[in-house]
């Protein structure tokens, strides 16, 4: 299929500065879409999609800087698993979502991670493991510890949420945003020391001029 030429950084070629692409991965009905919808809905400033709930954008402020999330929802059904690697192209972050009441979805999330590894260099992508549906605690099949342990072994971020109760939802995204920005700063610092300062002061896209 279509070959990936290059992966443009978040501060890609033209225009919009600090756009981060985030893909939602996980098997069917673990609540990927709900998670994103809940998150976008919280913000009165953002415009809700009128027709579809598959592609969202949201501007996030982390400290002094702000970034724009582009959230790509993916089809979670098993049969589409084989083609979903196409979504990974050029992604900056990924949420591996599983349902805490379904063990199989947890295993599936681990499989997604393997697929992701094949397509992208994990060091370039912020990956977070998210256990959703904590509101159904009596049906829980995956414990918090299990999730945490796996996340740590793979050095992923980890959180448990409830999209239904809107518990920890925005925290998930802010954590990812923070991590992304930190990495940006680290990268910017590597070639040139004062890039980070510019990053924190002015409009973020200016950092680009210095970094390149």
């Amino acid at each position: 299929m279509a070959q990936a030429h290059r992966t443009p950084g978040p501060r890609a070629v033209s225009g919009q500065p600090f756009v981060f692409k985030l893909v939602l991965l996980g098997s069917g009905s673990v609540g990927k879409s709900s998670l994103a919808l809940q998150y976008v809905k919280n913000d009165f400033k953002s415009i809700l999609p009128t027709v579809g709930c598959a592609f969202f954008t949201k501007v996030v402020n982390v400290g002094a800087s702000s970034l724009k999330f582009e959230i790509w929802d993916t089809a979670g059904q098993e049969k589409y698993h084989s083609v979903c690697h196409l979504y990974f192209r050029g992604t900056n972050a990924a949420l591996l979502v599983y349902d805490v009441t379904r063990k199989d979805s947890f295993h599936k999330a681990q499989q997604w991670l393997k697929d992701l590894e094949k397509e992208v260099h994990l060091g370039d992508v912020v990956v977070m493991l998210v256990g959703n549906k904590t509101d159904l605690s009596e049906e829980r099949e995956v414990t918090f510890e299990e999730g945490k342990e796996f996340a740590e072994s793979q050095s992923l971020l980890f959180m448990e949420t409830s999209a239904k109760l809107n518990h920890q939802v925005s925290e998930v995204f802010s954590a990812v945003a923070q991590e992304l920005l930190q990495r940006e700063v680290r990268e910017a610092q590597a070639p040139q020391g004062d890039a980070a300062m510019v990053l924190n002061e002015g409009p973020t896209w200016q950092a680009k001029c210095c970094a390149h």
Binding site: L24, G28, S29, K32, S33, P49, T50, V51, G52, C53, A54, W72, D73, T74, A75, G76, Q77, Y80
Partner: peptide, 9 residues
């Protein structure tokens, strides 16, 4: 509103 699970098929 449709999610990606509905859209791709």
């Amino acid at each position: 509103p449709a999610s990606a699970d509905d859209f791709l098929p």
